[in-house]
Amino acid sequence: MELRQLEYFVRVARLQHVTKAAEELHVAQSAVSRQIHRLEEELGIRLFMQRGRNVQLTPVGQLFLRRAEAVLGDLDRAVMEIHEFLDPEVGEIRLGFPHSLGIHVVPQVVAEFRKLHPNVKFRFRQGMYPSLIRDIVDAEVDIAFISPYPEKSDQVTGEVVLTEELFAILPETHKLALKDSIMLSELKEDTFVLFSSGYSLRPIVWDACREAGFTPKIGFEGEEAGTIRGLVAAGMGVSLLPKMAMYETSSMMPAVVKISEPHVTRTIGIIRRTGEKMPLVVQMFHSFLLEFFKNQYQEQ
Rank of each mutant, 00 (worst) to 15 (best):
E2D: 14
L3F: 05
E7D: 12
Y8Q: 01
F9S: 01
H17S: 00
V18H: 00
T19D: 11
A21T: 13
H37M: 14
E40I: 09
I45R: 15
R53L: 13
Q56K: 13
A70V: 15
A70I: 09
L72G: 00
D74W: 08
D74P: 11
L75I: 11
D76C: 02
V79W: 07
V79D: 01
V79P: 15
E84N: 10
F85T: 03
L86V: 14
L86E: 14
L86D: 15
P88E: 15
G91R: 00
E92R: 09
L95D: 00
P98M: 09
P98C: 12
P98H: 13
L116V: 14
V120Q: 03
R123Q: 11
R123I: 07
R125M: 10
R125Y: 10
Q126K: 08
P130L: 06
S131C: 10
A139I: 07
E140K: 05
A144R: 14
I146R: 12
I146D: 02
S147T: 07
P150I: 06
D154T: 08
G158W: 00
L162N: 06
E164C: 14
L166G: 07
F167Y: 06
L178W: 04
L178C: 08
M183Y: 03
S196I: 12
S197G: 06
G198H: 09
G198T: 08
S200Q: 02
L201A: 12
P203T: 02
I204M: 01
A208Y: 13
A208I: 02
G213K: 01
T215K: 14
P216A: 05
G219L: 14
A234S: 04
G237I: 15
G237D: 14
G237H: 04
L240T: 07
L241P: 00
P242R: 03
K258R: 13
E261M: 09
G275R: 09
P279D: 14
P279C: 04
V282L: 04
F293Q: 02
Q300K: 08
